[in-house]
């Protein structure tokens, strides 16, 4: 389980972002998590609470948005949502070419603050 390492990095990033904006009162953290990010949502939510201990983020909520897969097919010249992460070819023409447009996200999208 590497979600604790990820959560620690995440807390560091949020502190950095918050301090860069003159110190924010963070109520909630909005996270974008791609299905191909290699990170488990529940394990991350659990680890986040632990990682927040001893920081001003204690008690903040974590809102996770799961980002589905989107690939670009060179043959169809179109973006497609593949069937699943186990079936990554183009759902239309079944060509093996794949460029992943979305699905690897592991980022803090927004911070909810009290003004």
């Amino acid at each position: 389980m590497h979600e604790l390492s990820i959560a620690v990095s995440m807390v560091e990033r949020i502190i950095e972002e918050s301090e860069g904006r003159g110190g924010l009162q963070v109520e909630a953290v909005h996270l974008r998590l791609g299905v191909l990010s290699g990170v488990d949502k529940d394990a991350l939510a659990f680890s986040y609470e632990i990682a927040c201990e001893g920081t001003f983020l204690v008690g903040s909520r974590l809102v996770i948005e799961t980002v589905p897969l989107l690939i670009y097919c060179d043959i169809c010249k179109m973006e497609h949502a593949p069937e699943s992460i186990q079936q990554m070819d183009c759902p239309q023409c079944h060509s093996p070419s794949q460029k992943i447009i979305r699905g690897r996200e592991l980022e803090v999208a927004a911070l909810e603050i009290t003004a």
């Binding site: 990033r13 909005h30 592991l106």
Partner: peptide, 15 residues
């Protein structure tokens, strides 16, 4: 005291 959303788009594993 209404919450406000600030977009940050910070990659977690940026370092």
């Amino acid at each position: 005291t209404a919450p406000r959303l600030i977009e940050v788009r910070a990659k977690i594993l940026k370092q």
